[in-house]
Amino acid sequence: MCNDNYGKKWTRDETILALSFYYEMPYGKINRSNKYLQSMADLMQRSLSSLIMKMVNLASLDESLLCRGVTSLPHSSKLDKEVWVEFKGKYEYLLLEKERILSSYNTSIKLTNPKVKHLPPAIDLKYYTPKERLVLVRKGQDFFRKAVLSAYGERCCMTGIAVPELLQACHIMPYSKCKSINDCLNPSNGICLNYLTHKAFDLGFISIHKTTKIIMVSDCLKKHPRIDETTKNWLLFLENKSINFPERNMPEYNFLEYHNDCIFKS
């Protein structure tokens, strides 16, 4: 479907949707072959080219991309900048606004996987309506997963494995220990790992140094009575190597510090 609407000004709601799409996919997949973007452009009655351009304009405001030398044409509007600042680091509000806007389109498109965890009991949800709580519980994990995997280009940050079925979005500070909903959803509290490294990370056998981003391997693993050659080749080989940095949402110091101090078996 072609919806050019040439010259039609972007609204705040449309810009918020474009921002949420930007967080949920690798920068390299913001292109015309992306079927998800095509379906969203049709839903918004925008051309695919227009939606892509809006996402690229928003990307030009992302300091993490600029630090990596990724540049784009600086055609962001005043509204783009306002929306970027408004939702910077406020992922729960972005998710709620996205769902509000999508519901206004009365769409039947399935956007998220409802089989997600409940929010940890430590988080106070009294400031949210029942409908907002449902969104945060059912769709928050899906947003987190997409945002983390897309930030790392859908590759394990330790091994480089890129088979989607073998990858997971791993919380650095465990989901159950997060003090706020935003910490649960924050892509900077996540890293992309394969199943084995994810399990080893959760158990504290490996960690990432809070300042150098170097992979650390626990002595408990090295001295494990049942350590085998395969495990040595897979995990001990990672020691002192740097992680592959994400395109955006670099792991934050405070989350890594928690993992280093409270989970890693040093």
Rank of each mutant, 00 (worst) to 15 (best):
M1V: 15
N3M: 06
G7W: 04
K9D: 09
K9L: 11
K9N: 10
W10A: 03
T11W: 00
A18S: 08
S20A: 13
F21Q: 09
Y23K: 09
E24A: 13
P26T: 09
K29Y: 13
K29S: 14
R32Y: 09
S33K: 12
N34W: 00
M44P: 00
M44I: 06
S47P: 01
S49T: 15
S50R: 11
V56C: 07
A59E: 05
A59M: 07
L61G: 06
D62L: 09
D62E: 12
E63L: 13
E63F: 10
T71M: 13
L73C: 11
H75P: 01
D80M: 01
W84K: 13
K90F: 08
Y91S: 03
E92Q: 13
L94E: 01
L95M: 05
L96I: 06
E97D: 13
K98Q: 14
E99D: 14
E99Q: 12
Y105W: 06
L111S: 06
N113T: 09
K117A: 14
Y127W: 08
K131H: 15
E132F: 06
E132K: 01
R133S: 05
R133V: 15
V135Q: 04
L136S: 01
R138P: 01
K139Q: 12
Q141W: 03
D142S: 15
F143A: 03
L149E: 08
S150V: 06
A151K: 07
Y152Q: 07
C157D: 04
T159V: 08
G160R: 02
V163G: 05
E165L: 15
L166R: 08
C170A: 15
I172A: 00
M173S: 07
L185S: 00
C192E: 05
Y195C: 11
L196R: 08
H198R: 11
D202G: 08
I208F: 03
H209R: 07
T212H: 00
V217H: 05
L221H: 03
L221M: 06
K222C: 08
K222L: 10
E229K: 12
W234C: 14
L236F: 02
L236C: 06
E239I: 01
N240T: 13
I243P: 11
F245K: 14
R248K: 15
N249T: 10
Y253R: 09
N260D: 14
I263R: 00
K265M: 00
K265S: 00
